[in-house]
Design a binder for these strands. Structure first.
Length: 541
DNA sequence: GTAGGGTTAG
């Protein structure tokens, strides 16, 4: 029997695995709690029920919430608009979106709040399409959307697939209804554009906003950060300080993430000082960003220190540390930590945690262990692997020379292999010189990204190593036909058979370094084997 | 009298 305590329910609702157990807990504490809130064992009024439901929604207190629902039915409050809206919100926030929809559909009348609650619910449950359809349905009624509704539906577009392009349409609604002065709405639009890689639109909107608050700054910084405009993110951070706007924990997270991607330990340490000054080291988001920053900068000991000092550790924090070990090549320590957490700390791993564990196996070359952990996901934790964990296992097989096994798994898995999977598979084919599988992988990649030179060049490399000069030449001429000009923003010159990559003006120093590294990686392989290929890869405009 | 909103982590 699991003891009923509210902390447990908060966690329980976040995780399906525990959630099924939470149903077996006793219910008396729930009723006791309602009574206490209402004072001295009296019957709860509809106001108390409403407030309590709202609090259950905020704190993910599933058990108490369903007790209140039961009480509502018994007491004839089912038709109360306020209570029903709060109930929709409660179920939606507790990830029971099917129940939320059921309550909403059973309501005889709806208002802005009930519509918005379900739209926001779909959005929070990553069902952007449903949120957008419901918004369209709402437009067909007498109830007009308000700024809450628009924020929720715009938010639903974030993280959706490429074909789900409603951000400009919603932007028009925002302007038409005069919500373009609301920072709430504008920040969700900035986030939406940035998330879709339309950074110019995000910047335009940000610059047009006259009274910028901290959140809108944070959103823009985070947008720059997501799109690898690290220097612009830093500039905006400085601008914020010049305007005497206090950074928040969100700002710190984004800036630490910038320091991670630039691997600038010195600047990262300065931000760490600011974290301490602001007293934010207890924030688990900030702590996680710090661990990530230190481990990506190669200072794993400092990452451990941060972890030790964080009193409230959760799965994300532990995962950061496991990933930190894995990425700096200390796979064994990563796995030891994971095993310790399972046995001693009762860690309940999620999918991302398994990604970190499988990455560790990958870096350490532990095939058997990798397979074991992969199978444990389903058998021990009821988690069906998603494409990221499949990608890890496929990469683990391929890197270690089991190309056939990797290819079979790509066939068996319930997802279509993405660019990441094909390109890691192609580079394994290159290492092990497998012409047949390499050709297939390159062709798939060329179909997906016809203008990415890397796939053509890697395939040409595989052919050249096997002495298949004609095939290699065919691939190179195909590349020259398809890629007619140099990718925007960078160029290169050849001096003494060495490539010197330089950036044109509008490319930041950081991007230019990344491009150099990438090109050096590609061309070094080619130069090594067959110097005459060098002439062919001068793709002129 | 009661309900709903924006940016953050692996």
């Amino acid at each position: 029997m699991i003891r009923a305590n509210w902390k447990f329910f908060e966690t329980a609702c976040k995780n399906d695995y525990i959630r099924k157990h939470s149903k077996s807990a006793s219910t008396y504490q729930a009723l006791e709690s309602i009574s206490k809130m209402n004072g001295l064992m009296e019957k709860p009024t509809k106001y108390v029920l409403c407030n309590t439901l709202s609090s259950c929604a905020k704190n993910l207190n599933w058990h108490l919430g369903i007790q209140i629902h039961a009480y509502m039915i018994r007491s004839g409050y089912e038709d109360n608009l306020f209570l029903s809206s709060a109930l929709v919100d409660f179920y939606a926030k507790c990830f029971a979106i099917v129940d939320a929809r059921k309550i909403f559909r059973a309501m005889r009348i709806h208002d802005q709040v009930s519509w918005t609650s379900l739209i926001a619910g779909f959005s929070a449950n990553k069902q952007g399409r449903d949120a957008f359809l419901l918004f369209k349905e709402m437009l067909g009624t007498q109830i007009r959307p308000n700024c809450f509704t628009l924020t929720s539906v715009i938010n639903a577009c974030v993280g959706q697939n490429g074909d789900f392009e409603h951000c400009p349409t919603l932007h028009v609604h925002v302007i038409k209804r005069g919500f373009d002065t609301s920072n709430f709405v504008i920040s969700s639009l900035v986030d939406c554009y940035a998330n879709r890689g339309q950074i110019d639109d995000a910047v335009l909107l940000f610059n047009e906003t006259s009274e910028k608050d901290t959140v809108i700054y944070n959103t823009m910084i985070s947008g720059y950060c997501q799109n690898q405009y690290s220097e612009d993110a830093l500039k905006l951070f400085v601008e914020m300080q010049e305007k005497n706007m206090n950074p928040t924990d969100h700002t710190l997270c984004s800036i630490l993430s910038v320091c991670s991607s630039l691997a600038v330990l010195l600047e990262g340490k300065q931000v760490h000082s600011l974290v301490i000054k602001m007293g934010s080291e207890r924030n688990v988001f900030v702590a996680s960003a710090l661990i990530d920053m230190y481990s990506k900068s190669g200072d794993i000991d400092e990452a451990l220190c941060v972890l030790d000092q964080t009193s409230k550790k959760n799965t994300v924090l532990w995962t950061s540390m496991i990933m930190g070990y894995a990425q700096c090549g200390r796979g064994l320590e990563a796995l030891e930590l994971f095993d310790y957490l399972l046995t001693e700390q009762e860690l309940i791993p999620d999918r991302v945690c398994f990604t970190a564990v499988l990455t560790a196996c990958n870096h350490a070359g532990f095939i058997d262990k990798g397979e074991e952990y992969f199978n444990q996901m389903r058998t021990n934790y009821g988690l069906s692997p998603d494409i990221d964990q499949y990608a890890c296992l496929i990469d683990l097989y391929a890197r270690n020379g089991n190309l056939r096994k990797a290819r079979d798994l790509m066939e068996e898995m319930p997802y279509d292999p993405n660019c990441i999977i094909w390109s890691s598979f192609l580079s394994a084919c290159n290492i092990y010189g497998d012409v047949e599988l390499g050709r297939e992988a390159a062709n798939q990649l060329i179909k997906m990204e016809p203008c990415n030179a890397a796939s053509y060049l890697t395939l040409a490399h595989i052919y050249t190593r096997k002495g298949l000069w004609n095939e290699a030449s065919e691939v190179r001429s195909l590349m020259q036909q398809r890629i007619k000009r140099k990718p925007a923003g960078w160029s290169w010159i050849e001096v003494d058979k060495q490539f010197h990559v330089f950036a044109v003006d509008d490319v930041t120093h950081q991007q230019s370094n990344e491009i150099s590294a990438e090109l050096e990686k590609i061309y070094f392989g080619i130069l090594e084997v067959s110097p005459h290929v060098v002439e062919d890869i001068n793709i002129e405009a």
